[in-house]
Design a binder for these strands. Structure first.
Lengths: 207, 207
DNA sequence: TATTTAATGTGAAAATATTAACAATGTTCA
DNA sequence: TGAACATTGTTAATATTTTCACATTAAATA
């Protein structure tokens, strides 16, 4: 299972989200075309992704929801789980913590950080908020491996540096400031404006 | 300029973000490899994207920042601009409004909506919040073309239906509920958990 | 001014990603 | 039971995206 395409990883995560909903509803099996419709892709694509992760079924009643969830978990999750931290406890940071809380067993948001001393040392959205000055110490203490950056754009670069220095292995950057990190740190950047502008472009095209 | 690859559109939006920062700093020209480094891609890719939109320079001092911004604007923006609305004035909705506010001239967040009657008819993060029941009316009155959905997952489907019925042309879905819309509506979905899980996967791989 | 250097623009090749096509095989129902 | 059907798994074809390679040419330098 060594070389899965990046796109496939993204889709597996999305499939799992859907499968978990199915499971909660008591649906035990799902066809490739059902998954496909829910994700606006083709059934072949679903089958290929599932082939790539080595799961298969002899049944013609679709995939076993529970079994498929487990296989995807083996790809994405680690046995011990991973700790993440949200840096910046503003609206976006709080939204992420609230949204995420308890949704996945092998990924935890274990801490948040803020420069605002009012926020520091309080529990925000169910997760303790530490002062920014303790970042290095707490990241090590709590074994945090992933940093989610939601500070104002002008602070993003220094936060990223601190995270890297603290030994973090992955960064998810929600600020509008492009970052740059060493090779051994995985960086994913997301800008809402780009998503919105993509929608705007296609709305314009459809006219 | 009729058939630009989807990937290129996304990158153009990102280039513009960077170019606007350059402009603000007084930087008048930028090399393809500078843009490339900032976006973690190759210089060839930047040049090809720029070629595709028909901009070129005879100078060997890089692209004219201002001119390039204008060309990208011609691709992405419409002359009149587009109005968007945020549906759901919780943490995420407020974060988006605050983050977005005034960043682009041709895209405006013109309204927000919430079921909570406490929030309705107040100004939240600088944008007026209307009661959910007025959605159809206000979307038409304010000529809103794009809906950004940030309600709890269980309300997403009905909100999307209402938006479509109100004549919206594009939807940006931030809930974890997969939506389904008619052909003539452009839908973009984003799930933070997927981004986080992608980071987790690659962190796991790097070990 | 002549030479070297460094940048862009782009056709063609390579790499990735998606889709088509279909064999194999459970499942359903007459 | 057996024919018709529906679904998976997978190879091959197609489409898309990225990269290579290099011609061209402005800028810098000797």
């Amino acid at each position: 299972m060594n070389k899965l395409p990046e796109k496939t990883i993204g889709r597996l995560s999305e499939y799992r989200r859907t499968l978990l909903i199915c499971l909660a509803k008591g649906k035990t099996h799902i066809f490739s075309h059902e998954l496909a419709n829910l994700h606006h892709i083709t059934a072949v694509q679903v089958r290929r992704d599932i082939m790539l992760i080595g799961y298969s079924t002899t049944l013609k009643k679709g995939y076993d929801v529970k079994a498929l969830i487990d296989v995807i978990a083996q790809i994405i999750d680690t046995d011990e789980g991973l700790n993440a931290a949200v840096i910046g406890a503003g609206n976006l940071g709080r939204a992420i913590i609230t949204y995420f809380n308890g949704k996945r067993t092998k990924l935890r948001i274990a801490a948040s950080f803020d420069v605002d001393t009012e926020k520091a040392n309080r529990v925000i959205a169910g997760v303790k908020c530490y002062p920014m000055t303790d970042l290095n110490k707490i990241v090590k203490e709590l074994n945090i491996r992933i940093g989610i950056i939601t500070v104002p754009p002008e602070d993003a670069v220094s936060v990223a540096e601190n995270l890297v220095n603290s030994g973090i292995k992955g960064i998810l950057n929600y600020t509008s400031t492009p970052l740059s990190v060493p090779q051994n740190v995985y960086l994913e950047e997301y800008d809402m404006i780009t998503s919105l502008e993509k929608v705007a472009y296609f709305v314009k095209q459809k006219k």
